[in-house]
Every structure is written in C-alpha cells, then in structure tokens.
Nucleic acid binder design. Structure first.
Lengths: 316, 316
DNA sequence: ATTAATTATATAACTAGTTATGCAAATGTA
DNA sequence: TACATTTGCATAACTAGTTATATAATTAAT
C-alpha cells in the first residue's frame, strides 16, 4: 500500500484496520476449508469455554477483551447453533453460566488440528519476515497500557508548543494584556481588590519603578501569560512573585512553568536569596505548579489581600 | 492480554482487532485535543484530497484501500461538514470529482502540526520497542500479497495430511475399494467397458499374476486411493500405469502424487525403463498430475479403451 | 447506428463490534 | 430489616466498515 509510505505513521490506525480485515476475511475461508460449521468471531468465546469448562458471560468478556454485550450476542448465536448450553446449576440467578454441548466438544476436537495448521502457517510468515508482527503487537499492548497514545501525543504537543513560547521583558504595549489576563482569573474566582487595581492599572509606577520586574510569555507573538516580581520592603524576602496569569486559550503549553522558572532566574540575577508568594488553595493547578517550581509553605506574614489563604517561599 | 499467550497465533485476527480499536479510539480523542472538528475515519480520504487536488471517488478508494461505497459515504459526510465540494467541471458525467473547500484547506493546514506530533509519538513507541509494528505491518502486507494466509494454511494442511497417508501393497481385502474407487470416477465421466470389469473384478488374475503391481493409499487406515502397474506385452514399454483413483473425500492430500511417485519407484525396482499411460483430456486434474510426475505425450499406440484420447510416457 | 459491455457512483442490507440503558438479583449499610 | 448500591445480563441504538445491486453514462463491438 503505497498510501502508507506517503502519509506517515499517523495512519497507523488505518493500516491496522486493513491488515485486520485481510486476516479475518481469510479466517472465514479457513473454517470452510476444514469443513467446520463455525463463524470466526465465535472463536475467542469458544476457546475460553473449551478451556474453562464453566464461566459467566462477563468473565469471558474480560478474558478475551470484548465488551459484555458482544459476548452476550455471540453466546446467543452459539446456543442457537447448538454448540453451547446454559448450565443452570448456579445459585446466583443473575448469572448465566454456559458450557459446551456434546456437539461443541466434538467441534473443539475437530478444530484443534486446524488451529495447529494456522499456527504453523503464521509462524512461517514470521520466520520469513524481519519484523515480528506478533511480538510487536504484544509489546504495543504493554507500552500503550503503560502510557496511552493520546497521553503520548499530548505530551509531544506540549513539548513542541513550549518551544514556541518566548519569555520577554515587559514593555508598555503589554500593559493591556497584563491587566486583562489578571482581571480574567481574579474576577472568576474572587473579587478585584484595591491593591489589584493599583498594580494592574499602573505597573510602571507600582512595580517597575520600585525595582520589580514583569515578564511576558509570547505565543505566536501574542502575549498569553504574565508574571511579576515585586520588590518587598521591611521583609526577610527581597521579592514577591505575583500577578501570574496565563490565558486559558494557551493552556497545555507549560507557560506557567516557563514564566515561574524565568522569574526565579531573574530574582537570582537581582541578588535575591528567597522569593515569596501568596495564593489561595482553591487554585489547585496553580498551587501544584508552585510546588513543582520548588516553593514550600510558610506561615505568618501579613498580607493586604483577602483572598490569600496560603503563603509560600522559594529558596533560590 | 494473557488470553493471547494461551491461545496461540491463530488468534492473530482478534489481537489485531483489539489493537486497532485501541489506536482508533485514541485517534478520536486526539482530534478533540487539537480542537479540530474532524472524524478519524475521514482522514485517509481527506489526506488524499489534500495531496491530489482533484480526484474521483473510485480513485480515492483504490488509493487508500477502502471499498468504493465506503468512500462514497465519507465524501457525503465531508460535503455536509463543508470540508469538500463537487468540482463539476469534468466532462464525464458519471464522475463526481471533489476538491477541498476553503474551510477544508484551512483544516488541512491546522492538522499538519497534529500529524507531526502523532508521528513523533509513534516513533517514540517504536524506539521504545524491540519489534517494529509499523515495519512488521508493511512486511505482512507484502508477504500476504505474495501468498495469502488461506493459501499458506491450506498448503500446511496438505503437507501434514500427506504425512498421514501410507502407501501399501495390495491385499485381497482391498479388492472392494479398488473396484469401487475406480467405478466411481469411470462411470461419472465415461461408461464402464469390458476391459474395466475384467481388471477390477479380478485384479489378482488380470494384474498381479501377470507380473503387475497394485498400490493402495491408506488415510486413517482406510483405503482412499489406488493405482495399478500393468505388465505390457509386445511393446516398447514394460508397464502401463492404470486404474489410478482417489476418493473425492480424500482430496487435497496429494494422494495422487504420492501414488504416482510410488508406482514409478516400483516400476524402476522391477527393472522398467519407461512406463506408459492412457487417459482423456477432459480429466484435467489428472492430466496435470501426470505432467507434474514427469509424463510426456506420445502418439500411436493401440488401445482397447474408447475413452482414451491421450497417451503419455514417463522415462524412469 | 445499435447493441452489449464496462465504468462510476449511490443505495440498501448486512456484519462485527461498540456504548447506553434498563431490569432483576445480590450485596452492603444504617 | 429496609433501603441504597452494585453486579450480571439483555436489549436497543449506533458505528465503520463490508458486499450486492441498481442506474446512468461511456466505450467497444457488430
């Protein structure tokens, strides 16, 4: 299939589907070849029954990796075909235990040789090929169990996008974004306070002129995240990290992390030994981020903000 | 999936189906993650259109390995979603050429980054694993194209069963089978003749006592094939191979081949240089077998049989 | 120039699975 | 002991494909 060479690995699903169709189509013909009156889709259920003697529908479904309704339907078909029967002698009346009939046992014997032939044929293909499909499927089952494809793709997305994020110094043109991004989250969770308006309306005067810093995260040249380093007086800390905000539209790009790291770096450059922050525990993702950045809880400082119920510090 | 360890390679179809489901389920989530309003099953069609600019439904189906009705339905859905449109400017009015709309082109650009991320994620899994699933699928596509699974299984069946066939010397207890197997095919295609009755009713006298041989093929201890080596007098040949018959129930076990080989071997043992046979060209499988055994056409000998329209010899 | 065969597509009916849901039996809990 | 929750199964409705078939347009053949 030339198509797959062009399209790349993202068509893996399609490629698998086609191979599945090729293999299962031939499976039907194989039963015919051996003169067995049997439908391929019955096989996993039938095999389990032949092994286990007596088992419930839900147990079968779990064993073979089908949904319960799928097994339910297959069981009904096989009962109609006379291969299995309900065994009734269970106490739990919800359960529908099934066993092979005489005819079923006969077919299971008849089928044995066929399965061996198929096994040999497939082993033959594996021997002819450089890459072992059977072993590869086993490995993939394990690896995707460990970490699903969607998880892996989303990690790759994050990694790539965070490369496209630039952290730059504040410029007057970013004042609007600095204000809007902060107002957005503050007014969602709390109420805007006096101290907020001062800093957000006039960052030059209230933050920069006092010796603080503001960093802006740009994605595709748009400001999508901001964070300030505010000079503290009469305190064991030189700076407070505050007014961190990331646009919800730009989530999943590790922008908070990148801003936090950059702010800590900047504080170090400015000679700080420790930085301080205030937050609220209802902001769970934020608190998580602070822990990841290395902040730890502290107690007892005074704060002008009502919304503060947790205080943290980062030793640089 | 423990099930697959127990059940063996014959469950390859089931295993493939499960892996396909795992991968395609995540594919849907991936489109969601990237905020693209897109159904995974559209992808192969969409990709082809994005590459080829303008192409008919049947061409797409062939390219991506789907059936034409499948593509037909997908096209309809994508038209409804506004991603593609009919391009009308074809002369052949049967054809329904389709192209991407503006919106489609936009999405194709949007999707590009996503495909790259998936590619990287899958490459990551491949790098983590010892057995390359992608490469294995490619190899299997090639190998099954060369020789299908059903062909391989049927060859294995034949091989195994021919091992269970024993070629033994004639004993009086096989007279009935010798007669019945021959009467079956002769009376199906021709009419029994005088010479047939003589040899079949009294093989001891008409074949063995005159220095001929009869071999019997046993499968599960039942006589399922017979073949005679008849002494010829006043001829360049020492023996004629005749009365070869195989039960239709025992077909596909190479019994004709095994009998023919054994008869030739026996003739050699008896000092013959060439053996001769008579047949009729309407018996195509038989003629094919004779060629495979090394017989070649000859002309001009006299024969007592009306049904003979081809004569052959094998140089030993 | 007809007629027959082929081609391109659409539609219907089927297949082998899925998820969602409802019901009855069994189990847990106050 | 009564009520809520959980479990096991069946059924309905859906999905992503298939094969079979009908129809119209085109091409080939007499």
């Amino acid at each position: 299939m030339e198509f797959f060479d062009k399209v790349g690995k993202s068509a893996l699903g399609s490629r698998l589907r086609l191979m599945t169709a090729v293999v299962t189509d031939d499976a039907a013909k194989i039963y015919e070849l051996y003169g067995v009156d049997f439908v391929p889709k019955w096989f996993p259920v039938f095999y389990t029954l032949a092994e286990e003697r007596e088992i419930t529908i839900t147990e079968i479904a779990n064993e073979i990796g089908h949904s319960q309704p799928s097994v339910s339907k297959i069981i009904q078909e096989m009962i109609a075909a006379g291969l299995i029967e309900e065994s009734a002698k269970t106490e739990d009346k919800r359960k529908n235990n099934v066993v092979l009939t005489e005819k079923g046992i006969l077919i299971s014997k008849k089928i044995k040789q066929q399965l061996e032939d198929i096994d040999v044929a497939i082993e033959g293909i594996i021997a002819e090929s450089k890459h072992n499909l059977w072993a590869a499927l086993e490995e993939w089952e394990f690896l995707l169990e460990q970490k699903s494809l969607i998880k892996r793709v989303s990690e790759q997305k994050k990694k790539r996008e965070s490369k496209d994020v630039k952290i730059v110094d504040y410029k007057p043109e970013y004042q609007e974004a600095f204000r809007a991004l902060n107002v957005e989250w503050i007014s969602t969770y709390f109420e805007m306070e006096e101290a907020d308006y001062k800093a957000l309306d006039n960052p030059e005067e209230y933050i920069l002129k006092k010796g603080g810093k503001i960093l802006v995260a740009l994605y595709e040249n748009e400001p999508v995240g901001v964070c300030a380093l505010i000079k503290m007086n009469n305190s064991e800390y030189d700076f407070e990290m505050a007014k961190m905000a990331v646009s919800p539209k730009a989530q999943g790009k590790s922008i908070g992390w990148l801003l936090g790291k950059a702010i800590a770096e900047k504080a170090k450059e400015l000679g700080a030994k420790k930085i301080y922050l205030e937050s609220n525990t209802i902001l769970k993702p934020a608190i998580n981020l602070y822990y990841k950045l290395g902040f730890e809880k502290v107690f007892g400082l005074e704060t002008p903000y009502k919304r503060c119920n947790i205080q943290m510090e980062l030793v640089l």
